[in-house]
């Protein structure tokens, strides 16, 4: 296997697992969201990598310039991932605004402190 062959996909896996680990292991809500972002970004890299065709060019017809070009890259995954980026931005924005509200109510963004407060509240009921 030549070196760059699956290099992108290795990076995707590393990023994905790093992000996933941060989401699960960190108690700080902001860090969780950053981890979630890393996790989602790995999927963007994955989509962008798979549409790359070796030796391929952009699929635009240019009279006189595209003669001899036989291979084109696939533009569709790029379009798809633009949508996914928008979704990820919206998710992050919503998550951050929820964190702001959580901090207003609990005075903390550490998960263990929040859980401790919630448990106390349940005993009070």
């Amino acid at each position: 296997m030549e070196f760059p062959g699956l290099f992108n996909y290795w990076i995707v896996i590393v990023l994905m697992m790093t992000g996933f680990y941060i989401v699960m292991a960190h108690g700080n809500l902001i860090k969780k969201i950053v981890g979630l972002n890393v996790f989602q970004v790995s999927v963007f890299v994955f989509y962008i990598s798979m549409s790359k065709v070796k030796g391929g060019t952009a699929p635009i017809l240019r009279p006189g310039l595209d003669e001899g070009v036989e291979v084109y890259a696939n533009p569709l995954p790029h379009v798809l991932i633009l949508t996914a980026i928008v979704v990820a931005v919206a998710t992050t924005a919503l998550a951050l605004s929820l964190i702001v509200r959580i901090r207003e109510e609990y005075g903390s963004i550490e998960e263990d402190e929040i859980i401790a407060q919630e448990n106390n509240q349940e005993e009070d009921q």
């Binding site: 809500l29 979630l36 994955f46 929820l98 959580i102 609990y106 929040i114």
Partner: peptide, 27 residues
């Protein structure tokens, strides 16, 4: 209840992971 906020946050994290898994599968 203020616990609605943390419940929504947890659902958001789990939901985003679920949707991302789905999009990996589609890819």
């Amino acid at each position: 209840d203020k616990r609605a906020l943390t419940a929504a946050f947890r659902y958001l994290v789990m939901g985003a992971i679920g949707a991302t898994f789905y999009i990996i599968g589609v890819g």
